[in-house]
Design a protein around this nucleic acid. Structure first.
Lengths: 330, 330
DNA sequence: CTGAAAGCGCTAACAT
DNA sequence: ATGTTAGCGCTTTCAG
């Protein structure tokens, strides 16, 4: 099999000009039924596929949307991708998720750069504290933030109200009678982490509970193992908490695992509240009480907003609703 | 801010020709220190990034590797991506994972087609039974199969020995004294599913156990919910199994959930064996006894083989080792 | 060591 | 309705 046929080969095969081939390929201009058929025959005879590089170089767009994600392994992100992919696709765009996990802390920023310039726009889920990183990643392209937005910036975003959600969660714990409430968080470079901490603090304050620094653990990531370690350290403080609020379900599940191994019954000895409501939250034993984020909707909204941006509009920020889902761990 | 600067703008700014700019960008040919500096200054002054479309159109390659995945949501695949991404990256390639889940059954095959022609090669994890789909996806590009290979084809692959692994798992159950062993599988379009079923059958046969069609459940997917439903149906047969072997950890965990809800203790009343050894397997209660696949290594090997292929070599198929990891569910 | 120029495959005026 | 042609941004001979 010889090398890939170009549009010219198709034109020759069909006995028409390349412009005509382009027209039937894209449906941009009317073409007589007869020629159309000849072209289509040639296309399939040659097994021709348009070369996206040629096309994009010419049109200036790729119809690819990039999604920058902090971590493929967290099921939370998989759901968001699903939502975003569906709306992108139906608008004729392809959503490309890229896991930046391997690239953080690396001097080599070529992935974001390459992909950034490959795409027509980007949906960002990773923390972008400094301006440099932000410009780097967006590369002048339209972009929107999802969950991680920049307060005060003019980049459109969609998120839940992390602060309020955390307050609601902790308030629920307080209403259940808890007074010593631990807090397990992942990485405070993330806005969600900072805002949920604020919500935690606010709920404590409102209830007249003294903040207890020894009860807050910053793990660095959202792995199960990190949750377990945090729980272990909470168990080690002099007056251990009777409840803990974790900023993700994975952390919460890791914590429960640790508590169980240590012989503490959940929720009897210690209550555990998660965040996200990923699929495993409903399956794990005990069922995890958690703050549900509308993950699919977040992804879908992000894609819609990006599409609007590409369309020249100025989409307004959106805050979606969270809700407490009560299961057995609290 | 004006539109993106091209290489020509850089050349003008630096007072050199575009060829020279290209040379310092790529280090292809020697350039005097003085001009190099001028060019570099121009590049950063203009915040220039090379346009990947122009470059790829010219070179005929993109340095992008595509990974075709059946389902982002299954943690199993996340681990494989991790392995493949690491080796791709260090070879100067970017790994792009694409979730085909949304596209299966769709007439629109544009995702695979677009991405296929965007990339220099593909790592395939989805079942490719028919030739058409296979050619479509590869689009004449080098490709390798990972886990899902095509027996008898000349496409390089890396996998474990699914059949043997399943036999080992079931044999272990048999050694534990089980005689009625259920089997929960996902989707028999997958080679892994067919081969693990063969292994299950073989182990039964060798032990002189009669095959019991009422004990095998084909769910269609690997969700927790599917595992639960399958378990429920197993509970409903006249002589329910004392052990069940599921082809994935997610299915196994779903099954355990169902058994627990039905008041059956695992492993006391019914033993459950999973497959994959994803992170949650170690955290779930009870800890899941499972067949561990070297997921990261599978991904890494797949990437290495693809790279070899791109290098003109003919990599030999590889079979990696599985191993039983014993926890509490059996 | 550097520049001029010929493409790479495609789209979109502009003709006809 | 169809063909001609000028780019899109880049790499790479080929000259010098």
């Amino acid at each position: 099999m010889r090398s890939k046929p170009s549009i010219e080969a198709v034109a020759r095969e069909a006995g028409v000009s390349i412009a005509t081939v382009s027209r039937v390929l894209n449906g941009t201009k009317p073409v007589s039924a007869a020629t159309r058929e000849r072209v289509e025959a040639a296309v399939s005879a040659l097994d021709y596929r348009v070369n996206p590089f040629g096309r994009s170089l010419s049109t200036g767009q790729s119809r690819i949307l990039l999604m920058l994600m902090p971590d493929f392994a967290n099921p939370y992100y998989a759901e968001i991708v699903r939502g975003a992919a569906a709306v992108s696709r139906q608008a004729g765009y392809t959503l490309l998720p890229a896991d930046l996990e391997a690239w953080t802390g690396t001097a080599d920023a070529s992935l974001p750069t390459l992909l950034g310039s490959l795409s027509d726009g980007v949906i960002n889920l990773v923390p972008m504290s400094d301006q440099a990183a932000r410009r780097e990643a967006a590369n002048g392209k339209p972009w929107v933030n999802c969950s991680e937005f920049m307060p005060g910036s003019d980049v459109p975003y969609v998120s839940i109200d992390h602060r309020q959600a955390a307050t609601d969660a902790v308030q629920y714990l307080i209403n259940k009678g808890h007074r010593r409430i631990g807090f397990i968080t992942s990485d405070e470079r993330f806005l969600y982490a900072r805002q949920r901490r604020e919500g935690y603090d606010a709920a404590l304050l409102r209830a007249g509970l003294a903040p207890a620094p020894e009860l807050v653990c910053v793990t660095g990531d959202n792995s199960y193992a990190a949750g377990s370690q945090a729980a272990a350290s909470l168990l080690a403080v002099v007056d251990p908490p009777s409840a803990v609020f974790a900023v993700s379900d994975t952390l919460a599940i890791g914590a429960i695992k640790c508590f169980s191994k240590a012989g503490r019954r959940v929720p009897h000895d210690v209550a555990v509240m998660g965040f996200d409501d990923v699929p495993i939250a409903d399956i794990f034993e005990p069922g995890l009480t958690t703050v549900a984020q509308p993950m699919v909707e977040l992804g879908a909204a992000a894609a819609e907003m990006l599409l609007a941006l590409l369309d020249g509009q100025r989409p307004a920020p959106r805050i979606l609703q969270h809700r407490l889902v009560l299961r057995e761990s609290v």
